[in-house]
Simulated scan of single mutants.
Amino acid sequence: MTEQRYHVTGMTCGSCAGKLRSELGGVLGVNSVHVDIDTGAVTVTGEAFDGSKVCAAIKEAGFEVAAVL
């Protein structure tokens, strides 16, 4: 199991978090996504997912990756 954390900017509400979870759930290998709107932390857990595809999905959802933690 792999876990990666990202600092994401642009999230302001529960709807934003839901949109992000939905988009990331479509990335091959991603099993779960935890979003903390207050801190901007997004934790992705799964089996052998591609970090660049996770970043692309975050951008596709309309948000920016400020850092990979």
Rank of each mutant, 00 (worst) to 15 (best):
V35W: 02
I37Y: 06
G18E: 05
T2A: 13
R5N: 12
T43F: 04
S32H: 11
A41H: 02
G10H: 05
G51N: 13
I58E: 07
V54E: 08
G26A: 13
I58P: 02
A17W: 09
Y6G: 08
L20G: 06
T43I: 09
D36M: 01
V54N: 08
A56Q: 15
N31I: 11
Y6I: 05
A17P: 08
I58S: 07
T9I: 14
G29M: 10
F63D: 01
L69I: 13
G26V: 08
E47S: 06
K59Q: 12
V8S: 03
F49M: 10
F49V: 07
F49G: 06
G14D: 07
E3M: 09
K53I: 00
E47F: 10
D50Y: 10
K53F: 01
G62L: 12
G46Y: 11
G18Q: 15
V68W: 07
T12P: 02
A56V: 06
K53Q: 12
S15Q: 15
T2E: 14
G10T: 11
V27T: 03
S32R: 10
D38P: 11
F49N: 06
G40V: 06
M11S: 12
A61Y: 02
D38N: 14
L24S: 07
A66C: 09
A61G: 00
C16H: 02
D50T: 10
V65K: 02
V33C: 01
G46T: 05
V44L: 01
G26P: 00
L24G: 05
G46Q: 08
G62C: 12
V30A: 10
D38V: 06
G29C: 07
C13G: 01
L24F: 10
V42C: 12
E60T: 13
K59Y: 05
F63R: 06
E3A: 10
K53L: 13
Q4D: 05
A48Q: 15
K59V: 07
G26F: 12
E47M: 10
S15H: 15
Q4N: 10
L69P: 00
T39H: 02
H7F: 05
